[in-house]
Simulated assay, not measured.
Amino acid sequence: MHRRLALAITAAVLLTPLATAQPADIATFSSRLSWTMDDRRFGGWSGLELSPDGSTFVMVSDRANILTGRIERDENGLITGVQAGTIRPLKYTTGGDLPRYHDDSEGLAMAADGRIYVSFESVHRVVVYDNAVVERAIDLPRVPDYDSLQNNSSLEALAIDEDGAIYIIPERSGEIDKPFPVHRLRGETWETPYEIPRRGEFLVVGADIGPDGRLYVLERALSSMLGFSSRVRRFDMSETALTNETTLFTSPAGRHDNLEGVAVWRDTAGHMRVTMVSDDNFRFFQTTEFVEYVVPE
């Protein structure tokens, strides 16, 4: 994703908040933490998964790296720190390094058995690894509409349900008035049971299915002078339809950095928490940050 935004972001050296009228948010802002590591590979985090209690994380970057660690919280559940492991490279189907154009990893989903699914742009595909060691990728069946996917705007959002079905949403729908398709993989067969209406200039960058069985979709819009706006929408899921579309929050431009990874979990009070991580595009004027909102039940 970072290549496509480079020119627009460079024009916005300072991400200045914009005071614009927003609809009342259902979700409330909880906490935010900026952080970094002394490793040149750090940055570009585009996919996020959390443990059911929100304490540990797995992330992938858009330069084919993976990182695991622990989120530290205070007695109120606010994020106070990060303890991270070692950044490691994702591997190819041969077990070796990913070839050029095969290394733009974007989406992340983790199954209950520990298998890790990763979606890629450029060479559009979804792969699975046996576990977080990510020693050898296994290609899943080719995604629908492969030939029409855009080079740097394709398989951004990846999610998995409790039955192990995989869901993929492209970043762009092709036209401003065309809905985003939601493709689902069960076994060896992709199908397209859902569409998400396109609202405004927002594009899909992340997705997760929460412990409540609902689909949460993270979207982003970019103002070249004011920074990023983020939005999370939630949908009830049936076998053939998404219903009860609900906007949980819309942030004004510049409030947060380039949020791309999203994970949803339930806290001890029974509330859903939407935790996100930003892709800093490896730019000095951007930052990696965890951002969290709470959705009252």
Rank of each mutant, 00 (worst) to 15 (best):
H2F: 08
L7Y: 11
A12H: 10
V13W: 09
L14V: 15
Q22Y: 05
P23V: 02
A24F: 05
A24E: 15
A24L: 12
D25V: 00
T28C: 06
T28M: 12
S31M: 03
L33R: 02
D38F: 02
R41K: 15
G44K: 06
G47D: 01
L50T: 14
S51Y: 08
G54Y: 07
G54P: 07
S55G: 10
V60P: 02
V60G: 03
S61A: 03
D62L: 01
R63F: 08
R63Q: 12
E75L: 03
N76H: 15
L78S: 05
I79G: 07
Q83D: 15
R88Y: 00
P89C: 00
D97R: 14
P99E: 09
R100P: 01
S105E: 02
S105T: 09
E106V: 09
L108R: 01
L108T: 00
A109Q: 07
A111N: 01
D113F: 03
D113N: 10
D113V: 04
G114F: 10
R115H: 06
V118A: 04
S119Q: 04
S119R: 01
S122M: 12
S122Y: 10
H124M: 05
V126L: 12
V128G: 07
V128K: 01
A137G: 08
A137D: 07
D139K: 11
R142T: 15
D147Y: 12
S148M: 09
S148V: 13
N151I: 09
N151T: 13
L155I: 05
D161T: 05
D163L: 11
A165F: 05
S173R: 08
I176R: 14
I176G: 00
D177M: 11
K178D: 09
P181K: 05
R184E: 08
L185T: 05
W190Q: 05
P193F: 12
Y194T: 06
R199H: 11
E201Y: 10
L203Q: 12
A207P: 05
D208F: 00
D212G: 04
L215F: 13
L218G: 02
L218Q: 06
E219N: 05
A221F: 04
L222F: 13
L226Y: 13
S230P: 04
S230F: 06
V232E: 13
R233P: 06
F235L: 06
E239L: 11
T240Q: 14
A241P: 00
A241Q: 14
E245P: 07
L248P: 04
L248H: 12
G254C: 12
N258A: 02
A263Q: 00
N281M: 13
R283E: 13
F285M: 07
T288Q: 09
T288R: 05
E289I: 03
V295E: 12
V295K: 07
